[in-house]
């Protein structure tokens, strides 16, 4: 039995290769500047979709829409074919289904201790304390931080903070996990850890959407590449054409 299933984070058995989350003609603007210009994005169930593009291409803005953290000015986000609604109850359902790991763990960590941080989402989902205790313990084991329960988050290293932020999302058992530049600021060991965790999540049947600039990392894990530029998706495929990579400032020289 897989680790996630042992954690009580078992997944349903009806996974088919189909679009699990998609955006239809998504538009968004900060003030008067258009950031997303009619984005049609699609991530398949159980696959790892890599979102690439230069800084300011609109990757993070797109990802924030997938969790309902931003509301589009035009277009819609669909999960399992159903458009998401933005009332409080519907958003809780969306966020239960779609977990979001922020780029900077310091932006994500909201509680002072590791235990509190990981228990935060579970408490908000209304779980009882005994269940929370068991799930937090197993989530910490899953990310290799067993025994860190009482540590203060601000005293952790960058790699440990990243693992705590992943654990705090995984413990909520989302079907879709979004990771915004998960390897930024990590050393080689940290990146290796993230790669292992991503692969394990995929094995457990999670759908992963990851934005990154780290092409070694991308080639290691990707099932599909989506490249954004100027607020639009300009490429969608299983390899990265060199001309597009060059045009979008993707660093390919070590991966060629």
């Amino acid at each position: 039995m897989s680790d996630l299933m042992l954690m009580g984070l078992k997944l349903g058995g009806d996974y088919m290769v189909e679009a699990m989350i998609e955006t239809i003609d998504l538009w968004y603007a900060y003030d008067t500047v258009d950031i997303l210009k009619g984005v049609n994005f699609k991530a398949e169930r159980g696959k790892i979709t890599l979102l690439l593009g230069r800084n300011g291409a609109g990757k993070t803005t797109l990802l924030l829409h997938l969790n309902g953290l931003l509301k589009p000015i035009k277009g819609e986000v669909r999960i399992d074919g159903k458009p998401i609604r933005y009332d409080k109850k519907s958003l809780i359902e969306v966020r239960r289904k779609v977990g979001f790991v922020f780029q900077n763990p310091d932006d994500q960590i909201v509680a002072p201790t590791v235990w509190q941080e990981i228990a935060f989402g579970l408490k908000n989902l209304g779980m009882d304390d005994d269940e929370i205790e068991i799930k937090v313990k197993k989530a910490l084991e899953w990310v290799g931080l067993a025994g860190f329960e009482n540590k203060l988050c601000n005293l952790l290293s960058g790699g440990e903070k990243k693992r705590v932020s992943i654990a705090s999302v995984i413990v909520m058992d989302p079907e879709i996990v979004i990771l915004d530049e998960p390897t930024s600021g990590l050393d080689g060991f940290g990146v290796k850890n993230v790669v292992e965790m991503v692969k394990r999540m995929k094995e457990e049947g999670k759908t992963l959407i990851i934005s990154t600039h780290d092409m070694d990392f991308a080639y290691e894990i990707a099932d599909k590449f989506v490249i954004m530029d100027g607020g639009k998706i300009i490429y969608n495929g299983k390899t990265i054409p060199e001309d597009i990579a060059e045009r979008c400032g993707l660093r390919l020289w070590r991966c060629r």
């Binding site: 953290l69 809780i92 922020f102 509680a111 408490k123 908000n124 329960e149 999302v169």
Partner: peptide, 14 residues
């Protein structure tokens, strides 16, 4: 970050 994890005004305490 709190909204992304369904914040409902509850803070876990151990």
């Amino acid at each position: 970050s709190m909204s992304a994890r369904c914040y409902s005004g509850k803070m876990p305490v151990r």
